[in-house]
Design a protein around this nucleic acid. Structure first.
Length: 564
RNA sequence: GUCCCUAUCGUCUAGUGGCCUAGGACAUGGCCCUUUCAAGGCCAGAACACGGGUUCGACUCCCGUUGGGGACGCCA
């Protein structure tokens, strides 16, 4: 690597799908690297053996790739990733020897040392500290015997701790400015766990150095860790990268937005469901083992595994809040829409459009061009679903019909293959796209049970007639809607081509000839074709269905809604 | 409890001492358009947390209060 090359990184721990806060951090790091002409590196922090999961790794990689956040260095996923500078591997669990080597150097110089306290002993100390209303701080006893401790290392379980420096450490944060931490705020923290794995602090410092990371952009929960990392860097003789801590993303109620929210909501909804209908419990147990389920319901602090939660969500048809990238993908957002919205949470380009509005819409490449640390805000931001939805609505509507259709089919392939299959005819599908574009805030809406496109995706006898609509538009009036339907049917038999404009014109002509207002004809048709009085413009509604289905549905309607 | 960060409309934000009787967007309400549902257009209401300083002059700088968030793990 040439000197001065910028390397920014995203370093998630594999504990489930990427959540939106992590996605934003990744996005910012990616944008910073692109802006500075550097590399964006992805590293997997899998040093917690208890929570490690291969599925989660794959999920995170796919989430990032879907968002268009491609890493030049990191685990391989298709064409993304690789190790051009030879700084890998990118899984910390495969780098243990490096951590141990660094630790050996530290111990040799008495900058780090083994400690043999049990969890119980430490808990007791913490309890005392808390009773005395002071912060707990681990420091090595003055009477500590180095030779004895080193001798015990070989045979006894132990952790390795850093000897914290007795000095104030100033973090030069590029978002927050200088933040000073006194010596009382850094204790002899653990570097290597009892199981031989490094702690986050050790692994992150060593890897950032080894991988030449120059910029560290991360969540605010790490600000307090930064002086520890700087202390470690000094002990090891490393440089200190540029730090910037971005504000958190919160729920509308002000709490921190996290994966836990989904778990909490699921527990509340499941309890409600079981109370209302105890038999649902059996369904739930098909998704989550009975024992696990009971334990989870009884302990508000426990969490289900990602797979279990997904299974439970499906089994009980729970409506859980979207917090992960996968949730939003499932909900039918475009990746560029999520990117755009996320980028605006805590950052903005500070540009005005010609008409005086703030510039709020930009692509990934715009972001790469405009991103800067200076324009990251300092206050936390609440995640506003309504605004995201508005972005989605607008960006979907701006697509060409063909693009919309392609995006929709792609979405369907993953989440609703039957919907796409129901509209195989390319011409009719294009009409569908044209009329759904302005009616669906996300791609998932089009095929949703009560969605505006549902009528075009079900069989001719696959929908019910809304009673009120039938009463208002078919039974009443002079002439009655039924009669009008019978009459307009003839016009439709002959209309060619069976396309929106021609249909629209033919129906208009029919109205004129019959001396009827457009509404008098259009509404009965809508009820007959869709079961309800609301649908896209008449020409589009009929063209999407095709002549055959239109005639079949009119006949079915006449038959089934006959007055008794 | 201790430490750290933070504070402009309901929400995201513009604002870097005079351009601010504070601008934009989303949401909300109203009107227009209209064969339904949308989309679109126009209009309206809506904020500098509070108290002290500094200054000729504070949304902007300083201090404090209050509110919010985070950390205090052999999690990351």
């Amino acid at each position: 690597m040439s000197r001065g090359t910028v390397v920014a990184r995203f370093a998630p721990s594999p504990t489930g799908h990427l959540h939106v806060g992590g996605a934003r951090t990744a996005l910012f790091n990616w944008a910073l690297a692109q802006k500075l002409g550097g590399h964006f590196l992805l590293r997997i922090e899998d040093t917690d053996q208890a929570r490690n999961s291969q599925d989660a790794v794959r999920g995170i990689l796919e989430d990032l790739a879907w968002l268009g956040i491609h890493w030049q260095e990191g685990p391989q996923l298709g064409a993304v990733g690789g190790d051009p500078r030879g700084v890998g591997p990118f899984f910390q669990s495969e780098r243990l020897a490096r951590y141990d080597a660094a630790l050996a150097r530290l111990i040799e110089r008495d900058l780090a040392y083994p400690a043999f306290d049990t969890t119980e002993e430490l808990d007791a100390l913490r309890k005392i500290a808390s009773a005395e209303k002071r912060a707990f701080r681990y420091v090595r006893a003055a009477s500590w015997d180095r030779a004895a401790a080193l001798a015990r290392m070989a045979s006894e379980p132990h952790v390795v701790r850093l000897r914290a420096p007795d000095e104030t450490i100033v973090v030069h944060d590029h978002v927050l400015g200088d933040v000073a931490f006194g010596p009382e705020q850094i204790d002899d923290f653990v570097l290597r766990k009892r199981d031989g794995f490094p702690t986050y602090h050790l692994a992150v410092v060593i890897d950032d150095e080894a991988m030449g990371v120059t910029h560290v952009l991360r969540g605010p929960e790490h600000l307090n860790n930064t002086p520890k990392h700087i202390a470690l860097q000094r002990a090891l003789g490393y440089r200190t990268p540029i730090y910037a801590h971005v504000p958190s993303i919160q729920n509308p109620d002000g709490s921190k937005m996290s994966k836990r929210d989904k778990d909490k909501a699921a527990r509340a909804l499941a309890q409600l469901a079981f109370a209302a209908d105890p038999s649902l419990r059996v369904r739930a147990e098909s998704a989550v083992a009975a024992k696990r389920l009971t334990a989870w319901l009884g302990d508000a602090k426990s969490q289900l595994e990602t797979g279990e939660l997904d299974a439970l969500e499906r089994a009980l048809a729970l409506d859980l809040p979207s917090v992960t990238v996968e949730d939003f993908r499932h909900a039918g957002y475009l990746p560029e829409t999520l990117d755009n919205y996320l980028a605006l949470l805590g950052w903005n380009p500070g540009e005005k459009l010609a008409d005086g509005r703030d510039r709020e819409r930009f692509s990934l490449s715009d972001l790469a061009e405009k991103f800067s640390l200076e324009r990251i805000g300092r206050g936390s931001a609440k995640f506003d679903r309504a605004k995201l939805l508005a972005f989605s609505q607008e960006q979907l509507a701006a697509l060409s019909d063909a693009d919309w259709l392609a995006r929709w089919r792609t979405w369907c392939a993953r989440y609703a293959p039957e919907a796409s299959a129901a509209l195989a005819d390319p011409q009719r599908a294009l009409v569908f796209a044209a009329s759904m574009k302005t009616r669906c805030a996300t791609l998932a809406v089009a095929s949703a049970p009560n969605g505006p496109g549902r009528f075009a995706l079900v069989a001719d006898d696959g929908f019910a007639y809304d009673e009120k609509a039938v009463a208002k538009w078919l039974a009443k009036g002079e002439p009655a809607g039924r009669t009008i339907l019978e009459n307009v049917r003839g016009t439709l038999v002959e209309t060619t081509p069976f396309e929106p404009a021609a249909i629209e014109a033919a129906v208009a002509k029919f109205c004129e000839a019959s001396g009827l207002g457009m509404g008098k004809v259009a509404q009965p048709l809508r009820v007959a074709l869709t079961g309800t009085a609301a649908s896209p413009p008449l020409g589009e509604t009929l063209a999407v269905l095709g002549r055959e289905a239109v005639l079949a549905r009119i006949d079915r309607c006449l038959r089934e809604t006959r007055p008794t």
